[in-house]
Design a binder for these strands. Structure first.
Length: 479
RNA sequence: GGCCCCUUCGUCUAGUGGUCUAGGACAUCUGGUUCUCAUCCAGAAAAUCGCGGGUUCGAAUCCCGCAGGGGUCACCA
C-alpha cells in the first residue's frame, strides 16, 4: 500500500477559524495515525484576494497548535515548491497536454458575453452550462484568453469515505477554466495537478467542494490519472445555525483563542469532537488518543453548529487536568502588571488557588488583582449583601476587631487560621455566612473570590491584618 | 431553477431491525460540599428519532414519496 499523504491547502486570504483548522486537523490525524505525511500547500493563485501576511499567520497557527507538517512552504520536501504561484510552469505543461489532445481550448468569448449567457440561463431557469455555447471548431489558445477544459459530460458514481456513495449526472459537468488570462491556474485545475504530483493519497476537504467533484473526476479522466481517495467533511455552522461559519460574520481566528488562553489540547479536542466521535461516551481525548482512534468513516455527515460554551467547558477541564507547575509555565504572559514584583512561589500559590475557577488564562488578571494590589473599599459589597446589610454596623466592626486580634496572634499557617476562625465562630455564635463573608470582603473587596482560609494564607499576615484595619476604618466613617 | 448533500433533546452526539418507555456531554434548573464565585457530587427537566406511506411479528434503524435546511452552478478557493 502506498504511503498515506494528506494535505491542507489554504489560500492566503487571512486567518484560520475553527472550521478550517478542523479540516486540517482531520487530515493531520489521518497522516499521523498511519505514519504518513502531512503537507501544507499554499493556494495563492488569486492575487486579488491575497492578504498580506496570511501565509505566516497560517503557518504560525499550525505551529502554535502543535500540528506539525512534513512539507510546506517553509519546509522543503521532494515535491516542492509548496506555493502554487511558484509552480506556474508545471500547470502550463499539464495544460498543454490537454491542448494537444484537443481537450482544452482558448475561450472565444469575452467576460461580458459569458455573463450574458449566464443571465439568459438564469432567466430560463436552466442551469448555466458553458459547454452549450462551445464552438464546434475549438479555438486555439493564445494565452491572452483563458484556457478552458473541454468536458465530456457523463454520469459518475464515486465513493466518499464520509458521505458514502454519491451519484451525479451530466448536468454537473461543464467546461471550466484551467488557466486564467493572467497565466495563473484556477483551483479546479491546480489542485488536481498538485495532489497528483505530490502523491496525496487522501483529499479531505469541506462540503462546499462536493458539487465540483464530478468536474474533477472528468478532468482526472482527461488527464489519465487516478483520483485520490476523497473525504468530505461537513460544514461548521455559526451559532445561529443558519449559515456556515465564516470570517465575515462571527468566526474567530484560532490564534485569538490561543491568545485568550485556551489551551491547544482543549482546542484540538474540541475541534475533533465537532463532527467526530469514537462511538463511545468519551469526551476528553488527548492528542495521542485522537491519533489512534480517529476514523474518517466516523465523521458526521451533517453540519454541526459551533457552540462556544462547550469549548469553554472543555478548556476548563484541561486547565484542571494540567498540573499547576505546567499551567504556571503556560500562564507566564497573562499575569497583571502589578504582579511583577511578586515571587514565583507566591504567584504559583495564587494560580493553584484560582485554577479550579479559571475558564481561560486571560481571566487571570481579573481573578487575581487583589493578591497584588491593595483593593479599594467597595461599600456596596456590604450594603448590597442580603445578610450583612441587616447587621448593625457596630457589630460588624466588633467582629472585624475580634478577627484582627485573634489572627494577629497566630503564625498564619493555614491550619492555624482555620482553627482560629472556627473558634471565633463559636465564641461569637455567628454563622460562617456572616463572619467569613465579612472577612472575605474586607480582604478581597471582591464579590467573588477563592476560599477565605487559603486566600488570606497566601495574602499573608501583614496584608490581611492591614486590610481588616482599613475595612474597620471605612465602617467607622459610615457612622 | 438544475444538480448534489443533509435531517435524533436548545447544542454536540450514541444508535447499522428486538436489550430504545432513545444513552452520554454542554447549556438550563434544584440540592449538597463550614463564606461569595467557581469546582466537584447528586438529581430534574429536555428528542412522539423532519413528515407521510410501505416492508416486517417488530423500525430511529430497510424501501418509496414529500417537506425543510445547506452547498453549488466565478478568469474565488
Amino acid at each position: 500500500m502506498n504511503k498515506i499523504r494528506t494535505r491542507f491547502a489554504p489560500s492566503p486570504t487571512g486567518f484560520l477559524h475553527i472550521g478550517g483548522v478542523r479540516t486540517a486537523l482531520y487530515a493531520w490525524l489521518l497522516a499521523k495515525q498511519n505514519k504518513g505525511d502531512f503537507v501544507i500547500r499554499i493556494e495563492d493563485t488569486d492575487k486579488d484576494r491575497e492578504v498580506e501576511g496570511s501565509i505566516e499567520h497560517i503557518l504560525k497557527t499550525f505551529k502554535m497548535l502543535g500540528l506539525d507538517y512534513d512539507e510546506g512552504p517553509d519546509k522543503p520536501g521532494p515535491f516542492g515548491p509548496y506555493m502554487q504561484s511558484e509552480r506556474l510552469p508545471i500547470y502550463h505543461e499539464w495544460a498543454l497536454k490537454l491542448v494537444s489532445k484537443g481537450l482544452a481550448y482558448g475561450d472565444p468569448f469575452s467576460k461580458e458575453e459569458v455573463e450574458g449567457y449566464r443571465i439568459d440561463a438564469k432567466q430560463k431557469k436552466l442551469p448555466f452550462l458553458y459547454r452549450n455555447y462551445r464552438p464546434n471548431k475549438l479555438p486555439a489558445w493564445d494565452k491572452s484568453k483563458p484556457l478552458r477544459f473541454k468536458s465530456n459530460p457523463q454520469k459518475y458514481t464515486w465513493n466518499d469515505i464520509v458521505l458514502g456513495q454519491i451519484q451525479s449526472n451530466e448536468n454537473a459537468i461543464d467546461d471550466f477554466i484551467l488557466i486564467k488570462s493572467d497565466g495563473y491556474p484556477t483551483y479546479n485545475f491546480a489542485h488536481i495537478v498538485d495532489d497528483y504530483l505530490m502523491q496525496i493519497s487522501h483529499v479531505i476537504r469541506s462540503q462546499e467542494f462536493i458539487a465540483s467533484v464530478p468536474k474533477f473526476l472528468n478532468l482526472y479522466q482527461a488527464l489519465e490519472i487516478e483520483p485520490p481517495i476523497l473525504a468530505t467533511v461537513p460544514a461548521i455552522l455559526g451559532p445561529d445555525g443558519r449559515k456556515k461559519l465564516s470570517k465575515r460574520d462571527n468566526a474567530k481566528d484560532i490564534l485569538d483563542y490561543l491568545k485568550e488562553g485556551y489551551l491547544k489540547e482543549a482546542l484540538i479536542n474540541f475541534m475533533a469532537l465537532l463532527g467526530w466521535n469514537d462511538s463511545t461516551e468519551q469526551e476528553i481525548f488527548n492528542v495521542d488518543q485522537l491519533i489512534s482512534k480517529f476514523k474518517l468513516s466516523n465523521v458526521q455527515k451533517s453540519p454541526a453548529k459551533f457552540d462556544e460554551r462547550r469549548l469553554v467547558w472543555m478548556n476548563g477541564q484541561y486547565i484542571r487536568m494540567t498540573s499547576t507547575t505546567e499551567l504556571y509555565a503556560l500562564a507566564k504572559s497573562y499575569w497583571p502588571n502589578d504582579s511583577k514584583t511578586f515571587s514565583q512561589d507566591y504567584k504559583m500559590a495564587v494560580l493553584d488557588l484560582i485554577k479550579e475557577r479559571l475558564k481561560y488564562l486571560s481571566e487571570i488578571p481579573d481573578l487575581t488583582s487583589f493578591f497584588f494590589v491593595e483593593p479599594k473599599i467597595d461599600p456596596s459589597l456590604i450594603t448590597d449583601n442580603k445578610i450583612l446589610s441587616k447587621i448593625d454596623n457596630q457589630f460588624l466592626i466588633k467582629l472585624l476587631e475580634l478577627s484582627h486580634q485573634r489572627l494577629s496572634k497566630t503564625s498564619f499557617k493555614l491550619e492555624e487560621i482555620k482553627n482560629t476562625l472556627n473558634d471565633l465562630l463559636l465564641e461569637t455564635a455567628q454563622k460562617p455566612v456572616v463572619l467569613f463573608s465579612l472577612i472575605r470582603i474586607a480582604t478581597t473587596q471582591s464579590p467573588a473570590s477563592p476560599s477565605l482560609f487559603e486566600t488570606i494564607a497566601i495574602l499573608g499576615k501583614d496584608k490581611t491584618l492591614s486590610r481588616i484595619e482599613t475595612q474597620i476604618k471605612a465602617l467607622k466613617n459610615y457612622e
